[in-house]
C-alpha cells in the first residue's frame, strides 16, 4: 500500500528542533510543517543550520530536542525508502560505471534490481545520458554527474524528496529540464523540500518557505504572502517621455528606465496610475506594485537578525 495515500496531516512536521555538536549549537529552535504535494523552500545563509535540520529529518542525526514526524509518524527504515535525498555536496562513486552506481543506490532504497534497471534506462533517455551509462562517473562532466545524482534521488519514486541546491553546476537548458522533472514530481503528489540560495528559483517553484538563521526559524509562510507582508506602499513604472509630477509621492528611485515611486501609507496605487494616464507628454509602458523579491527579504531579515 502506498504511504502517500495513507497519510493525511502534514507530510513532514518539525517542532522545536535543536541540535548541538559539543559547544556549537547548530540548530536552536526550528519548526515548520510541509504539506503533501508542495514544494517547500528551506532557506537560510551559510551555517544557519539547514543541513543539520535536513540530516535530522533523514534520521542521520538524532535531535537533542524537539519532534519530527514524517509520513505520519517517526521515521523508520521503511520510510527511509520513501525519501529521495540530493545533498549539497554531491556524492557518487567516481570509479563505478554510471548505470552500476545508479542501480546500487536504487537497491539501497528498496528497488528490485530489474525494476531499477528499467527506470534507469528511462531516465537515461530522458536526460540524454543513454550513451554515457557505461562510462565511469568520473569521466562525466559536472553537469552530467549532477543529472545522474538527480536520477538516484528520484528513481525509487519517493513520497518525499529533499534536495539541496539542485541546480548548481547545471546550464540553463539542464536547469530547465530538472525544474520540469521536479514539477512533474509535485504533480505526482511528491512532497519536495528544496534548499537553495537561488531566490528566483524559490519564487518560481516554491509554495511556502521557512527561513532559518543562526539555528532559529525566523520567517515562515507562503511565498506570496511573505512578499506582500514585506512590501512597502510603492509602485514600479516605466514610461516613455517625461515622468509627470505626482502629488504625494514620498521618494522616487531610478534604475534604468524603471522608476520606483514610494507612496504614503494611505495613498492608493490607482491614484498614481490615473495621474500617469492623464499626463499628455508620457506613455505608460509598465506599471506594477513594488513587491520586494525574496532576495531583498532574505537580506533584510538576515541583516536585522
Amino acid at each position: 500500500m502506498n504511504m502517500k495515500t495513507l497519510q493525511t496531516g502534514p507530510t513532514i512536521s518539525v517542532a522545536h528542533l535543536a541540535k548541538s555538536f559539543g559547544q556549537a549549537q547548530a540548530v536552536h529552535d526550528v519548526s515548520f510543517d510541509v504539506q503533501r504535494g508542495e514544494i517547500f523552500g528551506l532557506l537560510g545563509p551559510n551555517g544557519a543550520g539547514k543541513t543539520t535540520t535536513i540530516r535530522m529529518i533523514l534520521d542521520i542525526f538524532k535531535p537533542d530536542r524537539g519532534d519530527i514526524s514524517i509520513l505520519g509518524g517517526p521515521i523508520t527504515d521503511a520510510k527511509k525508502e520513501q525519501i529521495g535525498y540530493l545533498p549539497e555536496e554531491r556524492g557518487l562513486y567516481k570509479d563505478l560505471k554510471v548505470e552500476e552506481c545508479v542501480l546500487y543506490l536504487a537497491e539501497l532504497k528498496g528497488l528490485p534490481r530489474r525494476v531499477a534497471r528499467e527506470r534507469a534506462m528511462a531516465y537515461f533517455k530522458q536526460l540524454d545520458l543513454i550513451e554515457h551509462r557505461n562510462k565511469k562517473v568520473n569521466d562525466l562532466s559536472k553537469g552530467m554527474q549532477q543529472k545522474v545524482q538527480v536520477i538516484t534521488t528520484l528513481i525509487h519514486q519517493p513520497a518525499v524528496v529533499i534536495i539541496d541546491e539542485p541546480f548548481s553546476g547545471l546550464d540553463p537548458v539542464n536547469t530547465r529540464l530538472i525544474q520540469e522533472m521536479l514539477m512533474q514530481e509535485r504533480q505526482r503528489g511528491t512532497t519536495i523540500i528544496m534548499s537553495t540560495h537561488q531566490m528566483y528559483q524559490v519564487e518560481e517553484m516554491c509554495d511556502r518557505i521557512v527561513l532559518i538563521n543562526k539555528g532559529d526559524s525566523v520567517l515562515y509562510g507562503g511565498v506570496d504572502e511573505i512578499r506582500r507582508r514585506y512590501a512597502d506602499n510603492a509602485v514600479r513604472v516605466t514610461v516613455r517621455g517625461e515622468l509627470p509630477h505626482i502629488d504625494g509621492v514620498v521618494e522616487t528611485e531610478r534604475k534604468g528606465n524603471e522608476r520606483t515611486l514610494h507612496l504614503p501609507k494611505d495613498m492608493p496605487a490607482q491614484a498614481v496610475l490615473r495621474r500617469l494616464a492623464d499626463a499628455p507628454d508620457s506613455t505608460v509602458e509598465s506599471f506594477e506594485l513594488a513587491i520586494p523579491t525574496l532576495d531583498d527579504i532574505f537580506v533584510r531579515v538576515v541583516s536585522e537578525e
Binding site: 540530516r55 533523514l58 542521520i60 527511509k80 525508502e81 525519501i83 535525498y85 545533498p87 555536496e89 556524492g91 557518487l92 562513486y93 543506490l105 539501497l108 532504497k109 538516484t152
Partner: peptide, 8 residues
C-alpha cells in the same frame, strides 16, 4: 557518497 548512503 557517505551522506547519500546514510539516508538509506
Amino acid at each position: 557518497v557517505m551522506e547519500v548512503l546514510m539516508s538509506s
